[in-house]
Design a protein around this nucleic acid. Structure first.
Lengths: 154, 154
DNA sequence: CCTTTATTGAAAATGATTTTCATTATCAAT
DNA sequence: ATTGATAATGAAAATCATTTTCAATAAAGG
């Protein structure tokens, strides 16, 4: 079964060319996996799914690819406090929109919320501008998280 | 040399009594260490300093204490992406005020900024209230972080 | 000063992530 | 299309932060 056809010019491939990175089957698969799930997946979550598509893929490569995508800003890496990093596509086309997180410190449930985001982002942008000026940072991303206890755990 | 005298009623001791936790030398030391440094310290950073004060303290206990303090909301735990958790006193009396972070993704430099905080916090509080109502969360904390590249690394 | 039991520390275990290195595969140049 | 330089891969080993285990210790109420 063919899961992936080499579509020249897919949104992410240009980025790869720019930095001289090769377009390989494992990389295509990892990106495909990220695209087909909105959830925050750990490296091994990604590995398991990738492995189903092509059993020859290695966990190491999944880590490496996730890392590379994070560097490129294509993927955002999170730590929700359960000992493993979580990954999400930024601007998943046709997927989940940018969002912020609400984290239950007991059961580690994550709520992605998008409410109030417009106001929040407007606010963030202003702050970002001021900060990048003052500290001479090139700011590329942000994260807002609320911590507490969910309905069950409170 | 005596570094710590048991001051009955120190701000954190009441909290300990409330939950039936004992006030022990290792715990006093860990808190003292956190108080005397404003920085975001890893567990082993804390361990090293604690160890200087009292070499009998164990790394395990540092982890346990840090964990407990985090549960109690006395300490906030962060992940800045370098593989180890970082800890900071919340509301360090006479120490650093509440702040948000600006993180260089290349060299991992952390800037604590407090500018624009008043506005930011006002905003956060409103959002927090709406979120906790909507999702029935008991929100106890938040974190705002900006990611990018610092002056040197950009 | 006892007694109960939370706490401790050392060592071992765990588990996520990284490194190593020999093999394979991409892709620019032919 | 073929080739060759070298980027990328995967398996296994190595790291390293954090946890668990368990016997010894110490806090604090009586």
């Amino acid at each position: 079964m063919v899961y992936l056809l080499r579509k020249r010019g897919a949104w992410w491939q240009d980025r790869f060319h720019d930095i001289g990175a090769r377009i390989t089957a494992p990389r295509e698969i990892v990106i495909a996996v990220l695209q087909e799930t909105d959830d925050h997946m750990s490296a091994s979550d990604v590995y398991i799914r990738a492995h189903k598509i092509n059993p020859s893929i290695g966990l190491t490569t999944v880590y490496r690819t996730l890392d590379m995508l994070t560097q490129l800003g294509i993927v955002q890496k999170f730590d929700f406090g359960d000992g493993k990093a979580r990954f999400e596509l930024v601007n998943n086309p046709g997927g989940k929109k940018h969002h912020h997180h609400l984290i239950c410190m007991n059961c580690k449930t994550i709520v992605d919320y998008t409410e109030f985001l417009d106001e929040e982002l407007e606010f963030i942008n202003k702050t970002q501008e001021k900060l990048s000026k003052k500290y001479n940072f090139k700011i590329t991303d942000h994260a807002i998280s609320f911590y507490g206890y969910c309905d069950q755990c409170r």
